[in-house]
Each structure stands twice: as C-alpha cells, then as structure tokens.
Design a protein around this nucleic acid. Structure first.
Lengths: 138, 138
DNA sequence: TGAAAAATCATACTTTCGGGTGACTAAGCT
DNA sequence: AGCTTAGTCACCCGAAAGTATGATTTTTCA
C-alpha cells in the first residue's frame, strides 16, 4: 500500500519532468495541449486501474470481506452455529469438527440440523453454497 | 462497458475544454504546468480506479473468471468430471446430478471417486473447497 | 485399425449424514 | 423465581455418500 503510493508519486514526478522537458525544448505546447491531456489521462487511467486492482484483488488484507450480520441476525443463526458452518465450508467431517470444537459429534449434528432449517436447505453442501451467497461466510 | 468508454471520452473532452478555457482566459499556464498535471492525474487516477472497480466487481458479466485449465490438465481431470464437480458445488445430491446428466447414480459415484483421488481429498465438501481455491470452478 | 482413455453401470459393503425426539445445563432477562 | 435461548448430548433409523472391484461401451487418436 505504501509502495503503491510511492510509485504513484514517482510516476507523477517523472511525468512532470518529462513534460517540462518537452515544453522548454520544443515550445510546442501551445499547439497541442489536447495531446498532453490525452497522454496524461491515459497514463493515469492505467495507473488508476492498476491501483484499483491492487486494492480490490482477493487475498489483499485490505480487501474487504465483511460478514453480513444483518442476515445472520435475521435468520437467527447463533455464534456457535456459524463456527460449525465455517468448518463445514472448509470440508471437515462432523467428526473432525467435533474434535476441533471439543464437543461430541451429536452436538455438531444438532447444530447442523438447526442450521439447515434456518437456511432452508437439506444438505451441507447447499448450506455452504447459500451461506456463501449471503456472505455469511467468505 | 460501452457506457464506461463513453463516459471516459466525455470526461476527457470536458477536461480539454475546461483547460483550454482557463488557458486562453488567464494565460497562467506557463506558471504552473505541474498544477495542471497534478489535476489531470488525480482526476484520471480516480476515473481509472472507478473503471477498474467496475471491471472487477463480482456479478459483472465482463468480470473475469477464467478456469485454470493448466491445473485441470495437470491433474488429469476430464470434462465430465468437471461437470459433476460443478453440480456438486451447487449443492446437488448424487441422485439429482444423475438425473440432470441422464446417467445412473453409480456413474456419478465413480466420477466422484476418481475426482477425489485426483484432487487428493476424501469428501465432496473438500473437493469443492479445493476446486475453488485452484480456480477449477467459480 | 487397434490401443488407450473416458464414460458408463453394477454389486456389495462401510461410513457418514441427516431427521426426529427427548433431555439436561448454563446464562440472561423480566 | 420463572422463562427463554443457546449449547450440550444421546439414541435410533433410514438415506446418502464413499470405497472397492470388475466389466462393457464410446470416443479418441496415433
């Protein structure tokens, strides 16, 4: 991020320098200011797209996934259920989830049953799919 | 997309006009070309970011998901297997998949078994997770 | 045309999931 | 103190998923 800003400033400086140079060297500026504008515009549109992409790209810490809390509350999904749901989404079996959360498999099943009802689905794969589409999980 | 390009051109034209106007009106251009550059640069960086965002945002048809064909080939995953995998990712049961592809449930199971071996996973949820992380499916 | 790869299906068996039901405990609220 | 909610667990049973093995048919392609 800091690097991005630095590069941005650098490009700006270089451009100013280059344009200044052309300006005083040939004195053609008056003839084609539109050309200058176009040039700068294109350069910086490209820069902007690059910056935007960097800001947007998945895996970037600053890239935003924020949980849809409204939906979670609306559906009445509890903290624990959400926790289980996330582990399901990672592909763990009920047994593995139970081990990871230090509870019995039966408990996991209960959580999942409740979850399925709240999400109006029948299978874990559907639950994951729906939860993803609702941004309940990433 | 077409609209985006149009707006881009429009901003460009307006900017040229505005600058021209200031130029001929006050004749201050020689004093602060850096200011002009900065101005245009900022405007178009912003434009670029917006354009980039539009291009990137999920749900946009032009937003690019392209299948990781290299990985698919490397792993030796067939066309049919991929098809099954996608339906699994949508949360369908083996029976539903079988119905949709007009084959028997056993065939689906075979495809999935082969798929699991190729992806080195044990469960359908893991397969989906891994396939997603490898961009085999969206 | 003939071998290899992909797709199909079956049978048998094991494991995992999911539904239904009931119950107990702890925490929080009124 | 009584009520509600969340979390925990158990048992049963049937359905779905997954494993293993073997076999047949299609497609592909050298």
């Amino acid at each position: 991020m800091k690097k991005t800003v630095l590069i941005y400033g650098l490009i700006l400086a270089i451009l100013a320098f280059v344009l200044d140079y052309f300006d005083y060297r040939y004195h053609v500026r008056e003839l084609d200011i539109e050309f200058y504008i176009l040039f700068i515009a294109v350069i910086f549109t490209a820069t902007g797209i690059m910056v935007g992409r960097k800001l947007n790209k998945p895996g970037n810490e600053t890239s935003s996934f924020q949980r849809n809390s409204k939906a979670i509350n609306f559906l009445g999904i509890s903290e624990r259920e959400l926790e289980v749901l996330e582990l399901v989404a990672e592909g763990l079996s009920n047994k593995q989830i139970a081990g990871q959360l230090f509870v019995s498999v039966n408990t996991i099943k209960t959580h999942l049953s409740n979850l399925y009802e709240k999400l109006e689905v029948k299978r874990r794969t559907q639950a994951v799919e729906k939860a993803r589409s609702l941004s309940l999980i990433k």
